[in-house]
Design a protein around this nucleic acid. Structure first.
Lengths: 123, 123
DNA sequence: TCTATATTCAACCAACTGGTTGAATACTAA
DNA sequence: TTAGTATTCAACCAGTTGGTTGAATATAGA
């Protein structure tokens, strides 16, 4: 594996290892959002959310489209890009595990509990 | 999602975000290994590898069986355990992405480049 | 027993993370 | 032009990470 792709894997898994960032991805599943909109669902500062978005961006999981002063964030079209061409000799082994992860990630209560509580309050 | 499972996801993705730990998993794919055996393939100290194994263990990705003074490490039988039962409302969305990750993770050159070079030297 | 082996524990360190606040930049609209 | 909005940048901070070294613990074998 090229260093570039190993790097990419580091970034991808690191990005997914934080509950706020996973919650952001779930928010974005419903469509593109501005940074401010995304931040409204969280207790932390706008700046903190802005940083989390940058981590997702670095991992290639989301894309940013700047329209005037607004930055519209959306799930990346092709989040893993060129990496798809790599060899697959342990593929079956991992597929079962990642398939289970897919279930977990897809859960409606995927967001961190404290964030869900906050959203309830804000309604 | 219960806090316990969110926690588990944090641990799982965090564990996978390090190239040394991914390399350890690839080593273990061929069968259980002692801590010392695993460490031989890496340039870092035995202690450092021991710490990485603990991170994988915490994530439930590997299991440890102590036989006398030797600790045999192996891929966990059921690495994601109870988490499988969670809802799946974004499942299709993520499956395509995780399927691509499965390809990447399965690559023969999965290990960090510097570690591969070291293994070559040691032969 | 004594010595070597297998492993962890503990303390330390530099770098990184995830958060904060305040200021800067850039755009929109009155 | 002016005021307000959207966002990033920069500095800071406490906690974590990933590595080190040295000591402790436990087992195996002569």
């Amino acid at each position: 594996m090229s260093p570039a792709v190993a790097h990419n894997l580091d970034h991808t898994f690191h990005a997914l290892a934080d509950p706020t960032r996973r919650a952001l991805i779930v928010q974005l599943k419903a469509g593109g959002r501005r940074v401010t909109d995304l931040a409204d669902a969280h207790t932390m500062s706008l700046n903190a959310v802005s940083k989390h978005i940058k981590v997702l961006e670095r991992a290639g999981l989301v894309e940013r489209h700047v329209q005037g002063r607004e930055h519209r964030i959306q799930i990346a079209d092709d989040p893993l890009g060129e990496a798809e061409t790599w060899l697959t000799d342990t593929r079956e082994f991992w597929e079962t595990r990642l398939d289970r992860l897919a279930h977990m990630i897809g859960a409606s209560e995927f967001a961190a509990p404290q964030n869900r509580a906050v959203r309830e309050e804000k309604r």
